[in-house]
Design a protein around this nucleic acid. Structure first.
Lengths: 338, 338
DNA sequence: TGTTAGCACTCTAACCAAAAGAGTGCTAAC
DNA sequence: GTTAGCACTCTTTTGGTTAGAGTGCTAACA
């Protein structure tokens, strides 16, 4: 265990390092944080902390840099005293609220906002919709055996997908299918109606059984399995940072961020069901991201998960980032009306 | 005017510079391209070409680098002998064709493909839809005075937008509106029906006149004014390039590319109505992009413009890029069935 | 008159050594 | 347990030197 003073030193080094980005010397700490002690004392402690793997030196005769382990206790300390939020509501929240009605547009705007405020790459994801209430379903024949499925969810969210069916269906047959599906499904969640629908459609539309089954399968895919929607923004924010001066490494991260599948991996692994999680440096199983930290916050509303993420340097301003990400998540929510 | 030999030298310097990225010396040219002449002769010519602003030296005693003016005649020369295309159809085209049915998804895939094949940042845009044939229009009430407008175009393309109306409308009234609009508009283009619709709706739905007018206005906005859809991809491709080692400059370009509005500006300014345009370096009025070259190709099909773009270093492999962008544009088109 | 060989000249990039600066680790005293 | 002092280490900066590439110019040549 760390002594009180050791903890103080670790926190001070992290704090200072986040601001300056250069190794922190004993003098700095003694002068600014532990005024009771001299630099030499700090040096002794630092040597111990190095053995305990909270700090390390890039080389002898340099100051100390915090390890991920140190960042971890720093972040944990921040999360502890979460209560003391600044009461002032930032003005950018109002702008966000205005756009809340169109969920997709709001999330796009959110990634921009989040990125700019934190100087990190930001991402937003909208979880599966199986719990969301269906408002309207429509099947539209686009070409032979090609059908466009449109699902409108309560709240104005829209999902659509082009699918190809095993057999062609006329628009009339599709309209009939739409009518039936809507009859059963309207104002219910997909989870509630999925099985009923499967049976009901099978019975009544036997002639098109195969195609209908396929269509419902695809709907299921749209709403359940594959149905995360991703948005990213602010990629340019990390370009200037010294920790990403190694371009080839930056390139692999950027490439990752253009692949929905890798974002999906990140999101699935880390987004807590409700709340915040912080993944620091090598805590991340995605090896290409070992030099980054990731913040993920999520909330569930009307059966639908909203996830916000931040990807930045290990040396990010966690305190500010946590504040921003939580404010925005709150701002997106309809529950909270102030 | 340039002499035959001067032209040869310019083209050779450009060609060599595109491949190597370093200043080209007189010896290289003499040895590989103009075997009849000695290096000294080439040097004399080069001095003249420098005065004519086709070449410049980063410093005395360095080789020559082509100016944008030189790139321009190089590109023009390529465009001249367009006819001699390699007959082999690249295998990536087949993959693209398979995805052609869902236009949006196809364009997303296109940006990825285009970026990877050319090592440039790629963009795709889908032009306004006022000429496209309407298949179905739907108005869905999402909240009080909040309505989701969905427009499905022939071919499976979908546009949707959340709008707020001056007065609330019941879903029944909206259904009535949908019914009327569909009756008039189905299988016609927006351009054909816009004015009729405006009148017709006004007459019959007087009670909701204001809201209906607003809804139709918004539809107009969706389909005409603001209706470009943009996709970008392959941003990471330019990260490694030496010409973008100045990160702050790269950062401004990347920031531009995350703004739909600045992409819009680029697209509107440069996309030719049908065909290809190449903007080299300082030919670009967007000052932040003076270090880049931009390729834009577009085609119009069923009244709808598809635009593909490439943004890369001035020293890009134009020949390859032109081939790729044209192949892909052809591959996206439905007309061309081979 | 256009072309070429030869050579002095220029500029960059790479290398090296020396000096400055920052910060440590250790020792001895408090 | 804490601190002052000091020698030591390592990086960064600076300046100077060299090797190499490529030019421009001149004089000779076809």
């Amino acid at each position: 265990m760390l002594t009180e003073r050791q903890l103080e030193i670790v926190l001070a080094v992290v704090y200072e390092y986040i601001r300056s980005g250069v190794p922190i010397g004993s003098r700095t700490i003694a002068k600014r944080y532990l005024k009771g002690c001299s630099a030499a004392t700090i040096r002794n402690e630092m040597a111990d902390l190095e053995e305990l793997e909270y700090l390390y030196q890039p080389h002898t005769s340099a100051g100390r840099i915090p390890t991920p382990k140190a960042f971890r206790i720093y972040v944990d300390a921040i999360l502890q005293r979460q209560g003391s939020r600044p009461a002032t509501r930032p003005e950018w929240l109002d702008e966000l609220r205005k756009r809340r009605d169109d969920v997709q547009a709001a999330l796009r705007y959110t990634t921009k906002l989040l990125g700019n405020l934190t100087h990190c790459v930001s991402l937003a994801a909208l979880g599966p919709a199986q719990e969301a209430v269906l408002q309207k379903v429509e099947f539209i024949r686009v070409a032979e055996r090609s059908v466009l499925i449109i699902v409108v969810l309560k709240g104005g969210l829209i999902h659509h997908k082009m699918v190809s069916l095993p057999f062609d269906m006329t628009q009339e047959a599709l309209d009939e299918l739409s009518r039936r599906v809507n009859m059963v499904a309207q104002d219910k969640s997909w989870n509630e109606v999925r099985d009923v629908l499967q049976k009901y459609v099978m019975e009544e539309l036997e002639a098109y059984a195969d195609s209908c089954r396929k269509a419902l399968d695809e709907m299921n895919g749209m709403l359940v399995e594959n149905s995360y929607q991703y948005f990213t923004g602010g990629r340019y924010n990390v370009l200037g940072l010294p920790e990403f001066s190694d371009l080839s490494r930056l390139q692999t991260i950027m490439a990752l961020l253009e692949e929905d599948s890798s974002i999906a991996q990140l999101v699935k692994q880390f987004s807590p069901d409700n709340g915040l999680s912080v993944i620091i440096g090598d805590e991340n199983p995605v090896t290409q991201m070992r030099d980054c930290s990731v913040l993920m916050a999520s909330s569930v509303e009307k059966g639908r998960k909203t996830i916000l993420g931040l990807i930045g340097p290990v040396r990010m301003d966690y305190e500010h980032a946590i504040f921003v990400i939580q404010s925005i998540l709150g701002g997106l929510s309809r529950d909270e009306e102030t």
